[in-house]
Amino acid sequence: MATARVEADARALWGRLVAEKHVLPATYDRDLVDQLRQAMGLPSRRDIGVDLAGVSAQDLVRCLLGIAEPFAADA
């Protein structure tokens, strides 16, 4: 079994989520990216990976879970 890699910052974690196709920011998950920007106070429209510099992975996960919560409640 491979050792799990832990990402310490949001930029690295986001890059990994995109690289492994868990998030498709340019297509399917465009609305998710917009909600994430709003929740995290990221105003720009450039690559969100750039805007996540200096943000902790924990803060990114917390925001993603908050965005996903309404969908989980419907299940």
Score class of each variant (00 low, 15 high):
56 S>W: 00
60 L>K: 07
74 D>L: 15
8 A>N: 05
67 I>E: 06
37 R>C: 03
71 F>C: 10
25 P>T: 00
22 H>C: 02
20 E>N: 09
29 D>Q: 08
16 R>C: 04
15 G>C: 08
57 A>N: 03
23 V>A: 04
15 G>F: 11
13 L>T: 04
29 D>P: 03
5 R>V: 14
36 L>N: 02
12 A>D: 11
36 L>C: 03
42 L>P: 06
60 L>N: 04
19 A>K: 11
48 I>Y: 03
10 A>T: 05
26 A>F: 07
25 P>Y: 01
43 P>A: 13
70 P>A: 13
29 D>L: 06
52 L>A: 05
22 H>V: 04
29 D>K: 07
61 V>Q: 09
46 R>F: 12
26 A>C: 04
70 P>T: 07
50 V>K: 14
32 L>V: 03
66 G>L: 00
58 Q>L: 08
23 V>S: 03
22 H>P: 00
15 G>E: 13
12 A>R: 08
27 T>R: 15
69 E>M: 13
46 R>E: 14
69 E>K: 05
42 L>Y: 01
60 L>T: 07
32 L>H: 02
18 V>Y: 01
17 L>V: 03
69 E>R: 09
28 Y>Q: 14
17 L>A: 07
28 Y>A: 15
34 D>Y: 10
51 D>S: 15
51 D>I: 01
21 K>M: 12
12 A>W: 06
11 R>D: 10
34 D>G: 10
20 E>K: 05
41 G>P: 01
38 Q>G: 04
26 A>M: 09
18 V>R: 06
53 A>G: 08
57 A>V: 01
12 A>Y: 06
72 A>K: 10
63 C>Q: 11
39 A>C: 02
43 P>F: 01
30 R>N: 08
43 P>D: 15
40 M>W: 03
16 R>P: 00
13 L>C: 07
33 V>F: 02
45 R>K: 14
73 A>G: 02
69 E>T: 10
4 A>H: 11
51 D>M: 15
27 T>N: 15
7 E>V: 07
28 Y>D: 13
28 Y>G: 06
73 A>F: 10
72 A>V: 09
26 A>L: 14
50 V>C: 07
66 G>A: 07
67 I>F: 05
21 K>T: 13
38 Q>V: 13
19 A>M: 06
73 A>D: 11
70 P>N: 05
3 T>K: 15
21 K>R: 14
48 I>C: 06
1 M>N: 08
2 A>T: 09
29 D>V: 08
51 D>H: 11
19 A>V: 03
7 E>Q: 14
19 A>E: 13
66 G>Q: 07
42 L>N: 02
25 P>Q: 01
56 S>K: 01
37 R>K: 12
63 C>T: 05
29 D>Y: 05
22 H>Y: 08
66 G>Y: 00
43 P>Q: 12
68 A>I: 02
2 A>V: 08
59 D>T: 09
57 A>G: 10
11 R>P: 00
66 G>M: 01
5 R>M: 12
25 P>E: 01
26 A>T: 13
44 S>E: 15
49 G>T: 09
12 A>Q: 09
73 A>T: 10
11 R>I: 02
23 V>R: 01
74 D>N: 08
30 R>L: 12
70 P>Y: 09
28 Y>S: 13
57 A>S: 14
55 V>A: 09
24 L>G: 06
61 V>Y: 08
14 W>H: 05
68 A>P: 01
6 V>F: 11
54 G>M: 00
12 A>S: 15
36 L>K: 02
70 P>E: 06
45 R>T: 13
